[in-house]
């Protein structure tokens, strides 16, 4: 790091480790400490959200030479064991965000990370609304609840840099490549709106395996889809304030 607030953020999502990844994933992260100061993982850590897979992820991410912050993705919820998986990860020293935030001291700089899984609903003008059947209202209000929690968490964070970590996408630009018919299941503009209201330096997400890496919110915040198939490399590195 060359100045006080320089920061190098490594990020990847959708690593989808199955039990056959045990002992095999970690080598992809070798030398990460030379390239980055922190690793953010944007959910879909497992394939089926089983506890065994959760333990594989915990072991592969355990004691890395840089701090690791993660959120869960929809796959990690598939077996209704999301809380158990999160606690396996926490026992391994991984920070798991669940619609809250954390401040990391990295060198002389403070990095605030806020986030959680996020959820769907679609994008302004083409989205579901809280109307009609209970199932639809529940769907939309789940996203609203999450967006509100992120707003609160962002306001509370005091840091040199603020990054939002999500699984679902806050904007549709980074979904380009996915069929437009499924956009409402890939994210929601309510997430972007919440972050734009308070401000942040960067939003990271995954989930859209066929999407596009780079986008920007209506408020001008950089968005990066770091899903592993989108990146085509073990992780991306984003440098702030002239780091790297």
């Amino acid at each position: 790091m060359s100045t006080l607030t320089d920061l190098r953020i490594a990020a990847v999502g959708d690593i989808h480790l199955g039990e056959d990844a045990r002992g095999r994933y970690r080598r992809r992260l070798e030398g990460i400490e030379q390239r980055a100061d922190v690793l953010l993982v944007a959910g879909d850590l497992t394939r089926h959200g089983t506890l065994e897979e959760g333990r594989v992820v915990a072991d592969e991410l355990r004691d890395l030479p840089v701090p690791v912050v993660t959120v869960l993705g929809n796959h990690d919820y598939h077996s209704d064991l999301q809380f158990e998986i999160a606690s396996e990860l926490r026992d391994a020293g991984v920070i798991v965000l669940d619609d809250d935030g954390v401040v990391l001291e990295i060198g002389e700089s403070k990095l605030g990370v806020v986030g959680g899984k996020g959820f769907g609903g679609g994008y302004a003008g083409k989205c579901a609304s809280e109307f009609g059947e209970r199932e639809i209202k529940n769907f939309v209000s789940h996203t609203r609840f999450i967006a509100e929690a992120w707003k609160v968490a962002l306001k509370e964070i005091v840091a040199d840099h603020r990054v939002v970590l999500s699984h679902y996408s806050p904007i549709k630009e980074t979904l380009e490549g996915e069929p437009p018919e499924i956009y409402p299941f890939l994210g929601s503009y309510l997430l972007a709106e919440a972050v734009d209201t308070v401000g942040a330096d960067l939003i990271l997400h995954g989930h859209a395996h066929r999407g596009t890496e780079k986008g920007i919110t209506p408020g001008g915040i950089r968005v990066r889809n770091v899903a592993l198939p989108v990146l085509g490399k073990p992780y991306a590195v984003y440098c702030m304030d002239g780091a790297c």
Binding site: R8, R35, K233, P234, A236, Y238, C239, D241, G242
Partner: peptide, 9 residues
């Protein structure tokens, strides 16, 4: 092969 890092400024 990690390719290039991105600078956000």
């Amino acid at each position: 092969d990690q390719g290039e890092d991105e600078h956000l400024d």
